[in-house]
Design a protein around this nucleic acid. Structure first.
Lengths: 190, 190
DNA sequence: GAGGCCATGTAACATGTTACATGATTGT
DNA sequence: ACAATCATGTAACATGTTACATGGCCTC
């Protein structure tokens, strides 16, 4: 139930409407905990019922501005201290690596190099983000910087790994060699 | 819909019952794509209906042994070649980092060092696994080795990052300093 | 004959995604 | 007045988790 805690966390610094929170999700939390509009409104309702947040003001267009209650802040602290961040994390990419052997060697290599390219692009995106953000900001930015650094290191590692893996497959082979029936490998996008 | 493809992938090398597949999930795929028993049986039923797998033998205790059909193999190949492994990946750990500012500095540092310890333990676990596996095995092991290496690099990166982040928080501060109202930080487990 | 493993399934619930529906307000 | 943006919500569906239910087979 982390969406709940993401909302509580965002409400520490400010009061906000569901609409405002959606924008915050799309900007600050997009890479860490994406959420859809339905989810946000639904969860806000539940949090209100539970008493972890409350409506502190109403505005035009039925706008409801929520604020954190003392109970909400306590719950957020409890979560930060007690909860082990360890839900099972699935990786579709790695799953595909597992079965790469059913592809002819050249296609398997192409696939891995494509992944290297994707990781490199993501790395570049985060690097650009790092430049564009004003890091003198509030609490969220301070710690957001730590999260961003994680992303940078992760993508760098992924690119390096994918290149290494492609090389391994090339040298040691991963299953079937290309035969006449198989389509030739496409060149990896540069 | 990757569970579907995980099942198809496992059935490339062998025929197997739902029960057998569960064991394979718990051993080879546990760290990459965990699945529960309900999911496996449910999805096998759908795959059978769709014609991507078929019952090739029946055994005692109502055992149904499934095998891959040509259509199933084709679908697996299509997935490997076409599908970008890029579903939004959530990280509860990073989400917690984002809101670390609501904790007093010493608790925030303790939290990060705890994460470093967890990553180190996971790294050790994978290293032990690497030793214990017979890598001369089938296709699955060959590529499983690549996935394992990813895990090793990931956990190493995480430990290093967490130590770096703890140091950053210590030096630059992350929000509130500890005050009399806050509980003292516990020593990070060694 | 008893306990453990093999084997399959269902039900209830939580979470997440996509699409649809509705309308008020603001700026030009 | 028209479009863009603000603003909230519902419905249907897919995926994943936990718990329950049932019973056959094998070994000691």
């Amino acid at each position: 139930m982390s969406l709940r805690h993401a909302l509580l966390g965002l409400l520490v610094d400010r009061t906000a409407s569901g609409y405002d929170l959606m924008k915050l999700f799309d900007t600050s939390l997009a890479n860490v905990w994406p959420a859809t509009q339905s989810q946000v409104y639904g969860e806000l309702g539940k949090l209100d019922t539970t008493g972890l947040v409350e409506v502190v003001a109403e505005g035009p267009r039925g706008r409801k501005e929520y604020g954190l209650t003392p109970e909400g802040l306590a719950e957020l602290r409890r979560w930060l201290v007690e909860e082990e961040g360890s839900r099972p994390q699935r990786s579709e990419t790695l799953l595909q690596v597992f079965f790469l052997g059913v592809l002819p060697k050249n296609q398997a290599v192409a696939r891995l190099l494509r992944q290297a390219g994707t990781a490199a692009r993501q790395h570049a995106g985060l690097a650009a983000l790092k430049e564009s953000v004003d890091w003198e900001d509030g609490m969220l930015s301070v710690n957001g910087r730590l999260a961003l650094e994680y992303g940078l290191r992760l993508r760098a590692m992924e690119e390096e790994w994918a290149r290494w893996a492609a090389d391994e497959v090339l040298r040691k082979g991963s299953g079937r060699a290309a035969d006449a029936e198989d389509a030739p490998a496409e060149a990896p996008e540069s």
